[in-house]
Computed example of a mutant assay.
Amino acid sequence: MELSEDVMSDVVKRLRRAQGQVGGLIQMIEDGRDCKDVVTQLAAVSRALDRAGFKIIASGLEQCLQNGEEGSPQLEADRAELEKLFLSLA
């Protein structure tokens, strides 16, 4: 699966945001910040990673459906693989 430039740019932007959030999270833990603040930041990191993953899978599914011939074994295999990937993020 190849990602379009727009999708790749969006995914990289989301991952860079998550990277910054992880750095902030580490600093919060090292500084002994309140548990509620740490968990809130952890949830934000998790959402950012989930969104990046879902964007990749959605793009793959779109490509699969556009390029595949309905009922072909390859299309069915691609759908099954994307479903498995999607469920791994859920």
Rank of each mutant, 00 (worst) to 15 (best):
G23W: 04
L85R: 13
L75P: 08
A52E: 02
R51S: 15
R51C: 12
R47S: 15
G53A: 09
G20V: 06
M1Y: 12
L82N: 10
I26K: 09
R79H: 09
S59N: 13
I29S: 02
M28C: 05
A18K: 00
Q19E: 15
D31T: 05
G32N: 02
N67T: 12
L89Y: 02
C64S: 15
G68T: 06
A90N: 11
G71P: 07
V45K: 04
P73A: 14
Q74W: 02
L85C: 11
G68C: 09
S46G: 04
S9D: 08
Q21D: 08
Q74S: 12
E5A: 14
V12G: 00
L42Y: 08
P73R: 12
V45W: 02
R79K: 15
E83D: 12
L87P: 06
R17W: 05
R33K: 14
D34W: 06
E5H: 09
L49K: 01
M8E: 14
T40H: 09
R79A: 11
L65H: 02
G20K: 06
S9A: 13
G60C: 15
Q74T: 13
K36Y: 05
I57S: 05
I26S: 06
Q74V: 11
K84I: 01
E30Q: 15
Q21S: 07
K84M: 10
L75G: 06
V7H: 05
G24H: 07
G60D: 12
D50I: 01
L25C: 09
Q19L: 09
I29K: 03
G68R: 07
E70M: 09
L42V: 09
D31C: 06
K55F: 02
Q63C: 12
S46A: 10
E81W: 11
S59M: 02
G23D: 13
L87E: 11
M8S: 15
R33F: 03
V12E: 01
E70Y: 08
S9K: 13
A52H: 03
V22S: 01
L82R: 07
L75I: 06
L85Q: 13
Q41K: 06
K84E: 13
S72Q: 07
L87R: 15
G32Y: 05
